[in-house]
């Protein structure tokens, strides 16, 4: 993960749920097929036009709903660089971090519109909106989460932990 993530903003409304990000109808398909339908019900252009590094900006309670990790995996597959929202569905929040995508709580008064050019620093929580010349600070991630996200997510983190346990002789 780079220290600063820069990309265009894709803005979504309140209460966008996991079933919209990863529709059940495509559950048995591989991620390459499922990701094409990510957000289809609320923005049919998102999956085909999002660029690696782009930043998803959700409304309140972003990612409410099921435990399906495919919601976060679809964003990872599409190359989303960071997810910002004033509040998150709890499992989606954890899943996003587990797949190595920084998820930050966006201060309520920060205005971001679709297509704005954003710069996000996960380590400090600093968010800059280049298109509007504004900036704000989201609460930074707690150290152990930042460490996991920086490592690339839970799998690389577990690998390192197991390797260490093997070295130390379990």
């Amino acid at each position: 993960m780079t220290a600063v993530i820069s990309g265009r903003a894709w803005v979504f409304g309140d209460n966008v749920n996991t079933d919209v990000m990863a529709p059940g109808l495509y559950f048995k398909s591989p991620m390459s097929a499922m990701a094409k339908h990510c957000m289809e019900a609320v923005n049919p252009d998102f999956a085909s036009q999002v660029q690696p590094g782009d930043i998803v900006v959700g409304g309140k309670n972003f990612g409410i709903g099921s435990a399906r990790e495919q919601a976060a995996m679809a964003l990872q597959y599409l190359g989303v660089g960071a997810v910002l929202a004033p509040s998150f569905g709890r499992i989606f929040y954890r899943n996003t971090l587990n797949f190595g995508i920084p998820a930050l709580r966006l201060p309520a008064d920060m205005i971001i519109e679709a297509g704005d050019q954003l710069h996000v620093e996960p380590e400090t929580g600093r968010i800059r909106n280049e298109s509007r010349g504004t900036a704000c600070a989201a609460p930074a991630l707690p150290p152990h989460l930042l460490q996991m996200v920086t490592a690339g997510g839970l799998m690389p983190y577990l690998k390192a932990r197991l390797a260490k346990e093997n070295r130390d002789g379990r």
Partner: peptide
């Protein structure tokens, strides 16, 4: 509590979760 499969992998391996 409910969690995603990636996190359940962590539980399956370590028996722990934050």
């Amino acid at each position: 509590m409910g969690f995603g499969a990636i996190e359940m992998t962590g539980v399956a391996v370590t028996g722990e979760i934050w």
